[in-house]
């Protein structure tokens, strides 16, 4: 059974002039546990919107989204928030680390919303995660004193600290140079694989997309499998942000 199952998902937004702008149209997608999926597409193609829908940060206008077989459209706001924290881990292009908190505090932050032992052991768990991404020695540094690559590794540790079943990565290498990006992406793929988590990556980078087991192209709100290298190149020719 699929962990994430999207059927005929559409997302529209109403513009100030009352016209309707379709962002996603009839999107079908299945993500199995532990699977690595990449989604590529031009700027404005709806990649981030799709990721927000997957992560329960947004709701579709129509269509069905089953999370582990459970329809998400009937979930209360509270339940959605809890599931978001328990099932998903997010990695953002701009890292989005909490300023003026140390790396360890940043990694421990999601565990503030956990319960029981996970909450109580949050500090030691955070340090263990930082060890795993090779930043144990920099646990007490604030983000402002870390390089871009180190910051993204902290963000990866943070995304994985609650042992999520799915990691959603929005342009995880977008703010990094090629070499660092490759290292970070390799770490992300390895860490999620070790955790048994599925990884859904949005990227412009062909090499990043190539790491995925399945690749999709998102164009004008339509999602389709990406099979040809030429098509992949056409889909990612625009290097602007998604």
């Amino acid at each position: 059974m699929s962990l994430l199952e999207l059927r005929g998902i559409s997302r529209e937004v109403r513009l100030p002039d009352e016209s309707v702008l379709p962002i996603l149209t009839g999107v079908d997608l299945d993500v199995a546990p532990g699977e690595h999926v990449a989604i590529v597409g031009r700027s404005g193609s709806g990649k981030s919107t799709l990721l927000n829908l997957l992560g329960l940060l947004d709701t579709p206008t129509s269509g069905s989204y089953l999370l582990d077989g459970e329809p998400t459209d009937r979930l209360s706001a509270r339940r959605r928030s809890r599931l978001r924290g328990e099932v998903f881990g997010f990695v953002f292009q701009q890292f989005n680390l909490l300023p003026r908190r140390t790396a360890a505090e940043n990694v421990a932050a999601p565990l503030l919303y956990a319960r029981g032992r996970d909450y109580l052991r949050r500090r030691s768990t955070a340090r263990e995660m930082l060890d795993r991404v090779g930043l144990g020695a920099r646990a007490d540094q604030v983000p402002e004193r870390l390089s871009g690559g180190e910051q993204q590794r902290v963000a990866i540790a943070r995304a994985l600290v609650r042992a999520p079943r799915v990691v959603l990565a929005d342009e995880p290498t977008g703010a990094l140079d090629v070499e660092t990006g490759a290292q970070v992406m390799a770490l992300l793929a390895q860490a999620t694989a070790e955790n048994g988590a599925a990884l859904v990556t949005i990227t412009h980078d062909l090499s990043v997309a190539a790491l995925a087991g399945r690749r999709f192209r998102l164009e004008r709100g339509h999602l389709s499998p990406l099979v040809e290298a030429g098509a992949l190149g056409a889909a990612t020719s625009d290097r602007g942000p998604a």
């Binding site: 992560g55 940060l57 706001a77 509270r78 928030s81 809890r82 599931l83 978001r84 924290g85 328990e86 998903f88 997010f90 953002f92 989005n96 909490l98 300023p99 932050a109 999601p110 503030l112 919303y113 609650r162």
Partner: peptide
Amino acid sequence: IREIGVRRSFGATSGR
């Protein structure tokens, strides 16, 4: 606001 958004992605409810 950004920090609050990030915390929501961690699973923070509105009440929280």
